[in-house]
């Protein structure tokens, strides 16, 4: 399958809705890459898209200031959070609570995505714009300036975030969880932390603590997936 996936980029639409002349992003910006693929997937729905004003947003009743992109259509509304983990500690970086809160709020489609997996991101945005009701996508954007690594490694940083289980890619359709990218052999968490200059002062004991957090979060996610799988199988006989 590895060889086949190499040729897939040729089948994506080549229309670009992202204007590189109008953005003043740094070289190797993961956020710009994420926005580009979101625009590409949203296609004609982009005409009604709105960038939320950061100072005014109160998401789920809490004061947060992520950059939010809102795409409104007749039947549905998609909110995209572009998260570059600015100004957070190691514990904040590993605990993502927004997707879980979105599921609890009753969003019909909730997903996490990363621009290092562009087809996964593309499919999720397409799916979100097809579902009726509210939907939410949380995108992890590696930031070379903020995380302090070479700009050429920004796609690799996204790969290692997913492969070390620090940021698993999943989706929740009507509250039923499924993993979209499965990692058969997860790597050590220290691989993800040591490439980032912002965590250069982190000691080994803190890395061990962070590993415990990641294991706990991932086992919680696996429990949710297992329960939703068994529930759907018992009641309907189908696996979604």
């Amino acid at each position: 399958m590895d060889k086949f996936s190499l040729f897939v980029p040729n089948f994506l639409p080549c229309r670009e809705y992202f204007d590189p002349g109008n953005n003043n992003a740094c070289p190797g910006c993961g956020l710009a890459l994420g926005v580009r693929h979101v625009y590409k997937a949203a296609d004609k729905a982009m005409e009604k898209a709105l960038w939320e004003n950061i100072s005014d947003t109160k998401f789920f009743g809490i004061k947060t200031n992520p950059s939010l992109l809102k795409i409104k259509q007749k039947k549905n509304e998609l909110i995209i959070c572009l998260d570059n983990e600015a100004g957070g500690s190691l514990r904040d970086a590993l605990k993502k609570q927004m997707p879980g809160m979105a599921v609890a709020e009753g969003f019909k489609y909730v997903a996490t995505a990363c621009p290092s997996y562009p087809f996964d991101l593309y499919d999720k945005v397409k799916k979100a714009l097809d579902t009726e009701g509210k939907s939410y996508i949380h995108i992890l954007c590696p930031c070379p300036e903020g995380w302090q690594f070479d700009p050429e490694n920004s796609v690799k940083a996204g790969f290692s975030a997913v492969e070390t289980l620090a940021f698993p890619l999943y989706e929740a359709v009507c509250g039923f969880y499924t993993l979209t990218v499965k990692t058969a052999k997860p790597k050590k968490l220290s691989d993800y932390i040591t490439i980032q200059g912002r965590f250069s002062g982190v000691t080994d004991s803190e890395i061990a603590e962070a590993g415990a957090i990641v294991d706990k979060e991932y086992s919680k996610l696996l429990e949710k997936i297992q329960s939703s799988y068994s529930y759907t199988f018992e009641t309907t006989g189908k696996v979604y």
């Binding site: 590189p20 002349g21 070289p27 190797g28 070379p144 050429e152």
Partner: peptide
Amino acid sequence: PDAAVYRLDDGFFDVENQKCKGCGI
């Protein structure tokens, strides 16, 4: 990230001089 790489008619790829930031991805 800057949509600077584009496809030529013969299938090869090339870069637009004015858009590329030289990130090396």
